[in-house]
Computed example of a mutant assay.
Amino acid sequence: MEGEEGSQQPQLVLGDKLFLLRQPDVQDIDKVRYKEDVFTHINQNDMVPLYETLVADSVLDLDRALLDSMRAKIHDELANLDEKIADAEENLGESEVREAHLAKSLFFIRIMDKEKALEHLKVTETKTVAVGQKMDLVFYTLQLGFFDMDFDLISKSIDKAKNLFEEGGDWERKNRLKVYEGLYCMSTRNFEKAAKLFLDSISTFTTYELFPYDTFIFYTVLTSIISLDRVSLKQKVVDAPEILTVIGKIPYLSEFLNSLYDCQYKSFFSAFAGLTEQIKLDRYLHPHFRYYMREVRTVVYSQFLESYKSVTIEAMAKAFGVTEDFIDVELSRFIAAGKLHCKIDKVEGVLETNRPDAKNALYQATIKQGDFLLNRIQKLSRVIDL
């Protein structure tokens, strides 16, 4: 069940196809192919619970004969697994008992019976002594969570894994956990933490069961662009040898990253447009599509305006390869939301930057905290006097 190098977990591949099958932006001809793939996978792995769910949601058509056949095979295989567990408990050692229980847990994962899989993973854990093997059970649980984006299960499993590591654990599993946590952070819109975890794992990546290395680099670059300052982006991403060896294989990504750093804004917007479909049709990024688009535009507009005390709207529009009206509408929205520190002079057709004074902001924060502390001391002194 563990993904070998370059091999993504079949259940997670299935999850991606189910996501695409439900997207209105996916072409009908592609949906036909995804539907066939999903049906084939369900049939080959006797995934009765998932099949019944998809039939109820009108994603797949009901085939009564197939359903009865899959149920019969599940019944026979479960009887065989229970027989092996009983034999191991009567005649073999603790290690064999654990392996027999693990086989049953993996069977429930294969047929995507989530409730029974989680229940039997707990049983298997009671038969497990080694921390590393307990961690492997947590990874199976995390994969179940990522299949249907159960963030509560994922969060609890990550916390459990961290507690296990306090008892011990090897570096390889610790590094794998960073990627799982990074994917969780990215999926819950914590892009800054996701970028940090991904960058920490970039030279030790072995988590092929989640996604291929190309996809990992794709996520690393996307999260880093909106999380890192310009200097850090250059050191950790633009010049990173691990990224340089792969980034050219991903359409538009190299141009997207390098044109931002090199201030080639027209090329940046062109590459950005090419990447939007990839971001929109990624099931982990899809819920944050609009947010991510706004954040990237905030980064690029801020970078451009940082070089000027004032600049004409015409010059900015020319640099980005868009119309003046587009820049006017875009910046107005970001200024109103407090994302950009500038103002528009419509009469002169000029943008004037008004960067916040960092020293003044720090002074005001210190005064505010000082007042708060004095109030607390006064209240405490009154209590003491009483």
Score class of each variant (00 low, 15 high):
Phe205Val: 09
Phe304Val: 00
Leu12His: 00
Val48His: 10
Ala365Met: 13
Ser267Gly: 08
Leu210Tyr: 02
Gly6Cys: 04
Ile313Trp: 05
Arg110Ser: 10
Lys127Arg: 00
Gln364Ile: 06
Glu242Val: 04
Pro356Asp: 08
Leu118Asn: 07
Ser254Phe: 10
Glu94Trp: 07
Arg382Glu: 15
Phe218Arg: 11
Asp16Phe: 02
Ala317Gln: 11
Trp171Ile: 15
Ala161Gly: 15
Arg297Glu: 15
Phe268Asn: 01
Val123Gln: 06
Glu96Leu: 01
Phe205Asn: 08
Leu340Glu: 03
Leu81Met: 07
Arg283Leu: 02
Ser58Ile: 02
Asp87His: 06
His120Val: 01
Asp214Val: 00
Leu373Trp: 08
Gly3Arg: 05
Tyr301Ala: 11
Trp171Asn: 14
Glu306Lys: 04
Met70Gly: 03
Tyr308Phe: 15
Val383Lys: 11
Pro241Lys: 11
Val129Lys: 11
Val221Lys: 04
Asn43Gly: 01
Asn354Trp: 02
Arg290Pro: 00
Asn175Cys: 07
Tyr219Ser: 02
Ile217Arg: 04
Tyr252Arg: 10
Ser105Phe: 06
Glu172Ile: 13
Thr124Leu: 11
Phe372Lys: 14
Leu275Ser: 10
Val179Thr: 13
Phe372His: 14
Val13Gln: 13
Lys122Tyr: 13
Met70Val: 07
Gly15His: 03
Thr141Ser: 12
Val123Cys: 01
Ala336Ile: 00
Leu118Ser: 01
Ser310His: 04
Glu255Tyr: 02
Leu54Cys: 02
Asp30Ala: 10
Leu21Lys: 06
Arg355Met: 05
Gln303Ala: 10
Pro287His: 05
Glu166Trp: 01
Phe139His: 02
Phe211Ala: 13
Phe326Pro: 03
Leu14Gln: 05
Val55Met: 01
Val347Ala: 14
Ser69Met: 06
Gly321Tyr: 05
Phe211Leu: 14
Leu12Thr: 02
Tyr213Gln: 12
Thr204Cys: 06
Phe107Trp: 05
Arg382Tyr: 04
Ser254Trp: 07
Val311Asp: 09
Phe289Ser: 09
Tyr184Thr: 04
Asp30Val: 00
Leu121Asn: 07
Thr223Pro: 04
Leu81Gln: 03
Leu20Thr: 04
Ala88Gly: 05
Asp68Ile: 12
Val131Ala: 11
Arg189Cys: 05
Thr353Lys: 09
Phe147Lys: 04
